[in-house]
Design a binder for these strands. Structure first.
Ligand code: FES
Ligand code: FES
Lengths: 152, 152
DNA sequence: AGGTATTCAGACTTATTTATCTGAAATATA
DNA sequence: TATATTTCAGATAAATAAGTCTGAATACCT
């Protein structure tokens, strides 16, 4: 198989986006996220904990507890999430699997790949979560796999 | 971790490229490939067998046996190799992990991703192995991880 | 205070990928 | 024909990723 990001990372992106659709300060439980996004409950718990430790989310225990964004949605980009879950190795990786990817000792698709990789990076930092949430409120966009749009 | 292609696939690419540097019809053993490219011997054996079954390589048993390209290097692209090892699912995958990636029900980075994905596809089909082998003969390029250039 | 709903922490299981081992089949060469 | 060298096939093992379970800690509510 060949992926871009790990499944954990995909779940993390979906969850943060879902939280960004909620009103400021509103708490959302793992249960709700897991149901609505079709993510295994306990697995999601772990992922949200990681994001919380990194400061991307904040959490609160007890009834009426749950998770919410840990910083303003304007300040969160996909790159933050990817960085927190998968790390940023992909910015240094060679298509051929060679150890170091650099201009002085390139493989034969290095030039093309460098451009594409920069494109991926731009995709990850250019849009913040607030903007993506706004997109997602339009009916044409979707938050979860099957669902188009979402009613919270 | 986040990768583009599986490790098997990276090994496959390196191996096919190495074989393309050999004279037409020359047989290369798993042993030589494994040593020069620093790939686990038996694991590489499996991978080369897969490529052989797909017709990308041809193999011959016995002393002076080994592997060679199964078609003219001008006709082999990276896409053939990726297709044989990892499959082509990545051409249909959504960055957010949603089930179907399409224009009618997009996620909020679908537009950017579609462009990038097409770029990856072009990278994989635009250069054939013969051209890449020619690149690799220049001292600035490298065939194996540490090695710059290669003396066969 | 007591009951309930939630996150948190850690051990555990399962699935997938990567890697290894063993021996059989094929083939060149002496 | 005998021997050595190679690929081939299938089982096995180790490493990593994905997912599950249990109970403790925390906080709300009556
Ligand atoms: S050296 Fe291979 S992609 Fe840069
Ligand atoms: S729908 Fe997400 S990348 Fe196409």
């Amino acid at each position: 198989m060949s992926l871009i990001f790990s499944r954990q990372c995909e779940y993390a992106i979906q969850s943060v986006l879902y939280l960004a659709l909620k009103h400021h300060g509103e708490m959302t439980s793992i249960r709700e996220l897991a149901q609505r996004l079709d993510i295994p409950y306990h697995f999601l718990g772990k992922i949200l904990q990681s994001l919380t430790r990194k400061g991307l989310l904040l959490s609160h225990k007890g009834p009426a507890g749950g998770f919410a964004l840990g910083m303003p949605p304007q300040d969160i980009t996909l790159f933050h999430i990817v960085e927190a879950i998968d790390g940023t190795d992909f910015t240094r990786m060679c298509v051929f699997g060679f150890s170091e990817c650099n201009d002085t000792n390139p493989c034969s698709v290095h030039e093309q790949w460098s451009v594409l990789r920069e494109g991926v990076y731009q995709m990850l930092i250019s849009k913040n979560i607030a903007a993506m949430a706004k997109d997602t409120k339009q009916p044409a966009f979707r938050i979860a796999s099957g669902m188009s749009n979402v009613s919270l």
